[in-house]
């Protein structure tokens, strides 16, 4: 459906993957009540790697990336983020969350704060950055996502695409080394999708480690180092985008690709 959103003729962005592991999941299992959402997930993410996760609705994509910053709790297996073990220790959880940014499908900006305040809140209250310094940094980031002129407005006054770019700037303000995106463009009108994807491409160029749940296959082809396909709580297949799209191994993947590319 979305191959055209980004010109598929554009080249794949050079990646700068190091051999340093930043996220490691081993044998992660999670249940919602009786329902087994994540089944024996093993995943290793290297610094600078860009991973796109796709799969049918309800396959557990959101649940997987939300386990990485403990918005969801897993019941079995180990999750290691930036060398910190995810457990019930609040200190560890806070340490992980400080360095992992997250962008949501529904933006989740704070409606009672201005755009600038949205971006400075966490640096000031979590990192104890002085306000002037936080303001300066936030303005830089707003320029990076190309909406510095909206700094004094409230989120409710912005378009969806603008709000999502603010949300990205807000996450970046904490200076994270990993960014998680959960369908960042799914709630947007077609015209606004590309402005958000542009920002994400820029982020990829800067060498950020990114895990992106998305159905934007054009984005996947251009940016991803690895595409992961999930179904029914399992990682069915993972490969480079070239191999994944042109030469899928599993019949489930083939079916999925034929469905989403049929549009």
């Amino acid at each position: 459906m979305s191959l055209e959103t980004l010109d598929s003729g554009q080249e794949h962005i050079a990646s700068a993957i190091s051999d340093e592991v930043v996220i490691e999941l081993s044998k992660v299992n999670k249940w919602y009540g009786e329902f087994h959402v994540l089944k024996d997930i093993d995943l290793t993410v290297y610094k600078g790697e860009r991973i796109v996760i796709c799969g049918p609705s309800g396959s557990g994509k959101s649940t997987l990336i939300r386990c990485i910053n403990r918005l969801e709790e897993h019941q079995q297996g180990d999750i290691l983020v930036n060398g910190v073990t995810m457990d019930t220790n609040l200190k560890n959880i806070d340490a992980i969350r400080r360095d992992v940014g997250m962008v949501f499908q529904s933006f989740n900006l704070f409606p009672h704060l201005t755009v600038l305040e949205n971006c400075t809140l966490a640096p000031i209250w979590v990192r104890n950055t002085p306000k002037a310094e936080a303001d300066r940094l936030a303005m830089q980031l707003l320029e990076r996502v190309k909406i510095p002129e909206q700094a004094a407005k409230y989120p409710g006054q912005l378009s969806g695409g603008q709000q999502q770019r603010v949300a990205i700037a807000r996450s970046l303000a904490m200076n994270p080394n990993i960014m998680l995106f959960d369908e960042p463009t799914s709630a947007l009108d077609p015209e606004m999708i590309s402005e958000v994807l542009d920002v994400m491409v820029g982020l990829a160029e800067s060498g950020m480690t990114m895990l992106v749940v998305t159905h934007e296959m054009g984005f996947a082809k251009r940016v991803a180092d690895r595409v992961i396909f999930m179904d029914q709580g399992e990682i069915v297949e993972q490969n480079t985008p070239g191999e994944f799209f042109n030469n899928p191994k599993s019949d489930r993947t083939k079916l999925f690709l034929s469905q989403i590319l049929a549009h």
Binding site: N69, D94, R97, G101, F104, N108, F110, L121, W125
Partner: peptide, 27 residues
């Protein structure tokens, strides 16, 4: 208050009391 507000606050590392006083209660 929308669940997303809690999640956004938690995801950026605010602890419970900061989340409540800065994000949730004012709204």
């Amino acid at each position: 208050i929308n669940k997303g507000q809690y999640e956004a606050a938690q995801a950026m590392g605010l602890n419970y009391w900061k989340m409540m006083t800065l994000i949730i209660m004012p709204q």
